[in-house]
Simulated assay, not measured.
Amino acid sequence: MLAAEFVRLGVPKDYGEDYEGLRLVFEIRLHNPAQYVAYVLGIDGSVFTGSRQSPRMYYLGQARSLMLVQIPPKEYVTTRIYLDLRHDNLEFIEKLRAGENPRFTVNLSTQFIACVPQQFIPPQNCQYIPIGPCAQTLSLSLAPQSQLYLIKCYIPLKDLRGNSLIEVDRDTWLDVLSKLGFKHIRVIEVPAITGVANEHAKAAIEYLDRAWALMSANYEEALNAARKALEELKSYAKDLGFIDEKEEIDFAKIYGASPGSELVRGMDNILRGLWVLTSVGSHAGRSRFIKRADVEFIITTIYMLMKSMQENMRSQ
């Protein structure tokens, strides 16, 4: 039975490999404690991640080896398994680790062929499928009674101290993120609006969700949906009695401040600015001036404005 030891975490460019996607490389060392040569045909690994704050481990994906490995008896051989990720996988790891060292567990499945004695009793975590008598090139110094087997074993990947929970130090992880280009992305956590019973408030959130979905295909339609969200937000304020005599949202009443205060003027300016920005979607030919970042800013600002209003309405 083979044993596996974690060496380090890296990316393809650490090994002179050219790969454009998000790919983690787990460098591992395989040990063959037996008297026979193991010809490893494939290595798969189910990879999970966690943190000190989260005892639960979350599945990330399946790592795979891209090379064949021959391990002599009683020897160690270093190889690699590769895990392809999406941006949201990295965002999840970042959120989960909360600035600390990320943790991983990797459950390996190895397939290899070897010549073993016919009377050999296989371990419980391995499957031995007989193929036939060993050829002279594979039998080496074993007796003629040796049998060629296809062997599949399930083994945990352990660190140098024998722990199956692998903790990668923070500096190494940040270096990996940098090499993957993740330093150019910042994850902003926007608290969800919950407990909404008003139909206009629900409609506003639905329009914002629609705007976010449309953003990848049509900026103008995304902005139109965002404008409808603003209209529903105004109706929401009206239902709760937060509209002034001019039929405008009464920020003074919402925030319990004087009408001429900087807070009220600032919130009113934000709302007016959003009205202007969302009107871009109704003007043909203007979309070429709009960038994705602009639409993201508008949608997120409307959402946070609504959340701020909701929290302050409850306290009035």
Rank of each mutant, 00 (worst) to 15 (best):
L41H: 08
V276D: 11
G21K: 13
F297E: 14
L148E: 10
V11F: 02
Y82V: 06
L233D: 00
K246T: 07
E296N: 13
F120M: 14
M309C: 07
M57H: 10
L83H: 04
E17P: 04
E220H: 09
G42W: 09
R286F: 12
L305E: 01
R186S: 13
A217S: 13
S261N: 09
L271Y: 15
C153H: 01
A98I: 07
A226D: 01
H87P: 05
V106Y: 01
E220M: 13
D171I: 08
I81M: 03
M67P: 01
F92Q: 04
L2I: 14
K238G: 02
Q124P: 06
R97Q: 09
L68C: 04
Q53M: 12
E167N: 05
G256N: 08
V276T: 12
L41E: 14
R210L: 13
K291D: 08
A225Q: 08
F104P: 00
H87N: 11
D169L: 04
P117H: 07
L177M: 15
S282N: 09
I43Y: 00
I155Q: 09
R186C: 03
V264T: 07
L177G: 00
A197C: 06
I129L: 15
L214N: 03
Q124A: 10
I290R: 05
V168M: 02
Y128C: 03
E221L: 11
F242L: 06
R80T: 02
K152W: 03
S216E: 11
D18R: 10
S51M: 03
N312V: 04
M215A: 07
T110I: 14
Y39R: 14
Q70S: 13
I302Y: 02
E20K: 11
S258E: 14
V295M: 05
R210E: 12
G10D: 00
S65E: 03
P259R: 14
I155N: 01
I121P: 05
